[in-house]
Amino acid sequence: MDVKLVNPFINATINVLETMAFMNVNAGKPYLKRDNVAVGDVTGVLGLTGVANGTISVTFEENCILTIVSNMFGETMSELNNEIADAVGELTNMISGQARRELEEMGKVFKAAIPSVVTGRNHSIIHYTEGPKIAIPFNTDNGDFTIEVCFER
């Protein structure tokens, strides 16, 4: 997998969370993820096709996503529900869009599918392609989240 494909997703994640949820987020050190178990409690997954086929996922700890969506809506969200799941889908969509714009500037054009969302503790994240899963942890003052980027070999 071309590691240059990963940075646009990190940049996009920071930009989307700062712009839409007014959150300062810090990216940690990327690592190779070996299993399918989600680190977070709610996950958005989105397929990409183009110069390579792949998947991105964004998985949030409960407290983290409740704070993010509360900031986005300007009102306090206190439980994981359909509104939170919908927001995770839209955040995944925005991260994908922003990253694809940066990738296009590198000459790599991708199209995106409509995201799906999975919730629940220890749920699985199924990437649509075989390939290494690069996980990038992020931390905020209100909890952590992780993005995974997986492109075919």
């Binding site: 839409m20 969506v69 986005m72 809506f73 300007g74 509104e83 919908d86 927001a87 889908g89 839209e90 969509n93 409509i114």
Partner: peptide, 12 residues
């Protein structure tokens, strides 16, 4: 918008 989240943000 197919996402209720975005409709809500835009409405706000």
């Amino acid at each position: 918008d197919d996402f209720a989240t975005m409709r809500r943000i835009l409405k706000n």
